[in-house]
Design a protein around this nucleic acid. Structure first.
Lengths: 120, 120
DNA sequence: GTAAACTATGGAGTATACTCCACAGTCAAA
DNA sequence: TTTGACTGTGGAGTATACTCCATAGTTTAC
């Protein structure tokens, strides 16, 4: 698929997608178009972009997501190392979840207090 | 307390703390020091900075944290609005938690597969 | 066949969040 | 009393993550 379609399917701008390709976060193959080349994206790229976006909203940087997704698709890294990296990532996520729970508890308490004050 | 102490207690650099003060994320009172003024920070500022940092790692921007913490310390905003803002924040956090869980599930599955491959 | 809508490239510009530096005054200990 | 660690201000610089623009070739619908 071309960049316009990918953009619509992921909700990311064409510029963002081109930027991600430039920094090697996603890949594209070339497709002839007259004297020039258009970029052809696979449907897996949709999933990849959605995961990147999700990770970003959870406070991961693009570099962290790149690393994680590269482990994901395996490749050259030894399995023992992959395991370590994924274990570390799981720890990070557990930590983040706990922090979110702490904040949620704070917020729910605050909300209850406010509700009591408004409707006594 | 002065900035050095606050820096040590929060793990944030002095520059970062000064930057946060500049953009109104935290406040300080003035304390005379000869012809000049030193900044005096209250112990609540520690808590505030820790929450800001926690929020940041969870993907909230400084502006979002400012808004949230401003609601938190109440003030001029009507309670009905405070309630709405906090409810929205709780929703956001629930969403983030769900996304983290999704990613964690992916990662745990991947980890199990890898472990099976390494120790068959 | 031509206008509208798409594509690529290169480079400049923006927002966020710092980080570093130079310079200068302050304070506590030796 | 002086040295070293602290404090402040102003401003420049950096990293990350885009966003916009000009230019120019391509495709599609009419």
């Amino acid at each position: 698929m071309l960049i316009g379609e990918l953009s619509k399917k992921t909700g990311l701008s064409k510029d963002t997608i081109r930027f991600y390709e430039k920094i090697g976060l996603i890949v594209a193959s070339d497709r002839c178009a007259g004297t020039r080349l258009y970029k052809e994206y696979s449907s897996e790229t949709i999933e990849r972009l959605l995961m990147i976006n999700q990770g970003k909203r959870l406070g991961f940087t693009l570099n962290e997501m790149k690393q994680l997704l590269d482990e994901w698709s395996g490749g050259t890294i030894p399995k023992q190392e992959q395991i370590k990296i994924i274990e570390r990532k799981i720890e990070e996520i557990t930590e983040k979840t706990q922090q979110l729970n702490t904040i949620e508890t704070y917020l729910v308490n605050k909300l209850n207090k406010l509700n009591e004050e408004v409707i006594p």
